[in-house]
Design a protein around this nucleic acid. Structure first.
Length: 389
DNA sequence: GATCCACGGGAATACACGGATG
DNA sequence: CATCCGTGTATTCCCGTGGATC
C-alpha cells in the first residue's frame, strides 16, 4: 500500500479529466441493476416465485451454471428490485378458501461463502430481515432461531431465501439448508451453484432448476461495452477491443470484466481517455483465466485481506516458501499479527483455492520441501480495489 | 455471572531426506 | 539391501482468551 500513489491519484483526479470515474462500478465483483442479456432468465426466476404473491409457497428453485455466467448478477438484480417493490403492487388478498398469507413476502439474499455454521446462518438471516443490529456473540444459536421463528409466525408472510454459492465447491456445506425446515412452512429457497442439481447434496429438495450457460462472445462484448460506459464514458472501449476481451475470457464475465478493469486502469495511469489495443493486450496477458472469483477474496475478513495485500507485493524470493512469505508479511504488517497466525492464514487460503502452494522440485538437503506461494486471483484488480478502500 | 462465538497462538503431527543399522 | 531413525521443515488442528450479550 503506497500512500504517495494514492494521494497523487486523488490530486490528479481532482485536477483533470480522469478516465475511470468509478472503480467500484468497474469492479468485476460489482453487480449492475439490469444485467445485460439475462432478461429471459430473470423472467423465469420471477415466474417460479410468482405464486408467492397469491399467498402460496412455491417449491425450491436451483439456478446453476459455470462461473461468470451471470448467476449472481441475475439474482442480486432481481432481489434488489423485489425488495423495492411498492406496497400497492404487492399481494392483494383474494377471497378464497385456500390459506393466504396476509402480508407481503420477504426476499432475503445470503452469500453462502460467509455461512459456515448454523449460528452464522441464523445470524445472517436475522440481520437481513431486522432493522437493528443482531448480536454476533453472547447469544445462543437457538435464541436466534427462535427469534426468526417468532418473527415469521406472527408476521404471517412467506419468505424466499436466496443462498448464493451453494455447493459450487467454494460455498458452505449444503447442510445449511437443513436449518430452513425448522423455521416455517412458508419458507422456500433459491439455491445458486455450479454443480448440476442432481449432483448437489440437496438434490431431492429441489423443486425446479434453471440452467444458465456461459455467455456467447457477442453477449459478453455487450456486457463489457455497457460496463465501460457506466464506469467511464461512451466510446472508451472500442467494439473490436470488447470482442478481443470477450474471446480471451471465453464467455466468463468475471474474467472479462477483470481484464477491462486492468486495461482501463492502465490507460488511466497514462492519462488517456480511451483504451488502446496495447492496454487490452497487456491486461489479458497479466491475468489468468484460472483465477478464482474476486468477490471471494473481497469478502474475506480484513486480516486475511491485509495478509494478501502484503503477500502480492512480496518478491519471488520471499514467496519461495510459506515460512519466508509469512516472515515477509509479518514484517510489513509490523507485528499486528504473529508470524504463526499469518502462516496459518496462508495455509487456510491455499486450502480454499485463493492461494496456491507449489512444491519446489528439487529437495535442498534437509527437511521437508517448501512450497512456493502463488496468488490465484486477479492480483492487479485486488491491489487497486484494496488500496481504494 | 453464565453463556456463547471468533480470533489468534502455538502445540502436535506429518513429511522428506540422509545416514545408521541389521 | 531393506528398513529404521534422527533431524529439520512443513502442515494441521486444537484450545485458551477476550469481548459481547442476556
Amino acid at each position: 500500500m503506497n500512500l504517495e500513489d494514492r494521494i497523487r491519484r486523488r490530486q490528479r483526479r481532482d485536477a483533470g479529466p480522469a478516465l475511470v470515474r468509478e472503480y467500484e462500478t468497474l469492479s468485476p465483483a460489482a453487480h449492475v441493476e439490469n444485467p445485460v442479456g439475462r432478461g429471459p432468465t430473470v423472467e423465469r426466476v420471477l415466474n417460479h416465485f410468482d405464486p408467492i404473491f397469491d399467498g402460496r409457497t412455491p417449491s425450491n428453485l436451483y439456478l446453476h451454471g459455470p462461473p461468470g455466467a451471470g448467476k449472481s448478477a441475475v439474482v442480486t438484480a432481481l432481489w434488489r428490485k423485489l425488495d423495492q417493490l411498492p406496497m400497492e403492487t404487492q399481494p392483494v388478498i383474494h377471497t378464497s378458501t385456500r390459506v393466504q398469507r396476509q402480508s407481503s413476502p420477504t426476499f432475503v439474499y445470503l452469500d453462502g461463502r460467509r455461512i459456515d455454521s448454523a449460528f452464522a446462518f441464523y445470524h445472517a438471516l436475522l440481520s437481513a430481515v431486522e432493522s437493528d443490529a443482531v448480536p454476533a456473540s453472547g447469544v445462543r444459536t437457538a435464541t436466534l432461531r427462535d427469534r426468526l421463528q417468532d418473527r415469521w409466525r406472527t408476521a404471517d408472510s412467506s419468505v424466499v431465501v436466496a443462498v448464493d454459492h451453494l455447493d459450487d465447491g467454494e460455498g458452505p456445506p449444503t447442510a445449511v439448508l437443513d436449518h430452513f425446515e425448522s423455521l416455517s412452512e412458508y419458507v422456500c429457497w433459491l439455491g445458486i451453484g455450479r454443480a448440476k442439481p442432481e449432483a448437489t447434496a440437496v438434490a431431492e429438495r429441489i423443486g425446479d432448476a434453471i440452467r444458465l450457460d456461459a455467455y456467447h462472445h457477442q453477449q459478453l462484448g455487450d456486457i463489457l461495452s455497457a460496463r465501460a460506459s457506466a464506469a467511464m464514458s461512451e466510446r472508451t472501449l472500442g467494439h473490436q477491443q470488447a470482442r478481443t476481451i470477450a474471446e480471451w475470457a471465453d464467455g466468463d464475465a468475471h474474467h472479462a470484466l477483470a481484464a477491462l478493469f486492468v486495461a482501463a486502469d492502465r490507460a488511466d495511469s497514462r492519462e488517456r481517455t480511451r483504451l488502446t489495443d496495447e492496454d487490452v493486450r497487456v491486461a489479458t496477458e497479466r491475468l489468468s483465466t484460472d483465477a478464482v472469483s474476486l468477490a471471494r477474496v473481497l469478502t474475506l475478513p480484513d486480516n486475511r485481506q491485509a495478509v494478501l495485500r502484503e503477500l502480492v507485493d512480496a518478491d519471488a524470493t520471499a514467496r519461495s516458501s510459506v515460512a519466508t512469505a509469512a516472515e515477509a508479511v509479518a514484517a510489513s504488517l509490523s507485528g499486528s499479527l504473529s508470524e504463526g497466525s499469518i502462516k496459518r492464514f496462508i495455509y487456510e487460503m491455499a486450502e480454499a483455492g485463493i492461494l496456491e502452494r507449489v512444491e519446489t522440485a528439487a529437495g535442498t538437503d534437509h527437511g521437508r520441501r517448501p512450497s512456493r506461494v502463488e496468488a490465484r486471483f486477479h492480483v492487479p484488480v485486488f491491489r487497486r480495489l484494496f488500496d481504494l478502500r
